[in-house]
């Protein structure tokens, strides 16, 4: 058995992908005029979901160059998210009484937003590839790879539409 391999990995990935696909559908339903803040929050939620699975299966023992690079992308994503939504409350209850606004407008916003979406796409791809490496064998990873590849294609279409809307 591969070192650090967890028998729960496949179940956790199914749960994660179910959450991500559900969130992707919600992203598609966000109306363009209300877009940016809701989109950013949804992306933030999806990244958090990925991190919670990564915490369980990509431990300090298996950190590699790929894992470090994925981690850097997450840090950059959070940095951009915080710069776009600096006052975003971390608690849901607080969010009810808080009117959020984007810190930037115009071209700066567009650049940051598109970078944020690109980073999100990279994060998903990097972590999917890291999760794939955690499988006991490539044969066991086959189903996961297939479903993840299909999801990435759909996600790319969704993010492309979001970026086009943001630029328009």
């Amino acid at each position: 058995m591969k070192a650090g391999y967890s028998p729960n990995l496949e179940g956790d990935l199914i749960r994660l992908l179910s959450i991500l696909d559900f969130s992707r559908n919600r992203l598609e339903q966000i109306p363009p005029q209300k877009g940016a803040i809701l989109v950013l929050k949804q992306l933030h939620f999806m990244v958090n979901a990925i991190i919670s699975v990564a915490d369980q299966h990509i431990t300090a023992k298996v950190v590699s160059r790929d894992a470090n690079s994925a981690l850097k992308k997450i840090i950059e994503f959070y940095a951009i998210y915080r710069s776009l939504l600096p006052d975003s409350p971390s608690l849901h209850l607080m969010a009810l009484f808080h009117k959020e606004e984007l810190a930037f407008q115009g071209e700066v916003y567009q650049d940051l937003f598109c970078r944020c979406v690109n980073l999100f796409q990279d994060i998903v791809q990097s972590y999917f590839s890291l999760f794939t490496q955690r499988f006991e064998s490539s044969l066991k990873a086959r189903d996961w790879v297939e479903v993840a590849a299909g999801f990435l294609v759909e996600l790319k279409q969704t993010t492309r539409t979001m970026q086009a809307t943001a630029i328009a």
Partner: peptide, 11 residues
């Protein structure tokens, strides 16, 4: 959604 179909099938 092909993703959901595949996930349910896998499960």
């Amino acid at each position: 959604s092909p993703t959901i179909r595949k996930l349910v099938s896998m499960t």
